[in-house]
């Protein structure tokens, strides 16, 4: 990864709900194969920014480039094609409850590729095995735990071999061990697949263990106020908000 190729770039991005601006003047670049974290306090608009990067919410101003294509200026057909290259792991897993895990993973494969049911089944099993869910193909989402649902969400997001993988609060609701295993999985998948990953999170252990780069979105000024390697930001950043965020309010808590 000596040569950095931009995978996702935002230029003067502004996102709003009506007159209420969520975030403005967002300018950052996520390089190919990088794990990038959108961090910030609760309610600062991290998930909304992620929705804008994934084509779910149109920006008020500015541009989002995936590779060299401007997502929101592209024609619908191009955007549909780009959607195949985007995998999203939702906060709740968002698995389709009426389908088994294998069916959840296999549905997009059957929709977009000319594969036999046997091939779809094998691929679904493989994707589930990648996230450590071998043998759980025929389980329904309601029959497995929250951590397993999240991992199954990762398997579904990987179904179409996306170039970009987005995670919305991957550690939310998980115990520290499961959360750490999920972080390991994210790193392993990045190393194996070379996928560009964007995580929305405010979980410090996850941020420090997986992130190559990050931006801090501020809920008061409605813009990004810091960016870079989170470990470096923790020691070097002078902004009190960022420093407080990365050091849990500046307190050295042990318990």
């Amino acid at each position: 990864m000596s040569q950095k190729t931009p995978a996702i770039t935002t230029k003067n991005l502004e996102i709003a709900y009506g007159d209420f601006v969520i975030q403005r003047d967002l300018n950052f670049t996520v390089n190919r194969g990088e794990i990038f974290v959108l961090m910030g306090g609760s309610g600062c608009g991290k998930t909304t920014v992620m929705r804008c990067l994934t084509g779910l919410k149109a920006p008020e101003k500015g541009q989002v480039f995936l590779g060299n294509i401007s997502l929101w200026e592209a024609e619908q057909a191009t955007r549909d094609q780009m959607a195949h290259n985007i995998g999203i792991v939702y906060q709740s897993g968002a698995l389709w409850s009426s389908m088994t895990l294998a069916e959840n993973v296999g549905l997009p494969l059957g929709e977009f590729y000319d594969l036999t049911p046997q091939e779809i089944r094998e691929l679904s099993s493989l994707k589930l095995a990648l996230v450590g869910l071998s043998g759980f193909e025929d389980y329904y989402p309601s029959e497995i735990s929250g951590g397993m649902r999240k991992r199954a969400g990762v398997a579904r997001a990987l179904a179409l071999d996306p170039q970009f993988l987005f995670f919305d609060e991957p550690s939310a609701g998980l115990d520290p061990v499961t959360s750490s295993l999920l972080d390991d999985l994210i790193l392993e998948l990045r190393d194996s697949l070379g996928t560009t990953m964007v995580l929305v999170t405010h979980e410090l252990p996850s941020i420090f263990s997986v992130a190559d780069n990050c931006v801090y979105l501020d809920g008061d000024t409605h813009t990004m106020i810091a960016g870079g390697d989170p470990k470096r930001l923790k020691t070097d950043c002078d902004d009190p908000k960022v420093h407080a965020f990365l050091t849990r309010g500046g307190k050295n808590r042990t318990g």
Binding site: A129, F136, D138
Partner: peptide, 18 residues
Amino acid sequence: GKLMDLAAAVPEKKGARK
């Protein structure tokens, strides 16, 4: 190669398969 190893890293839980 890494993916094939990753897929085999967590063996199937005994009795999990329906």
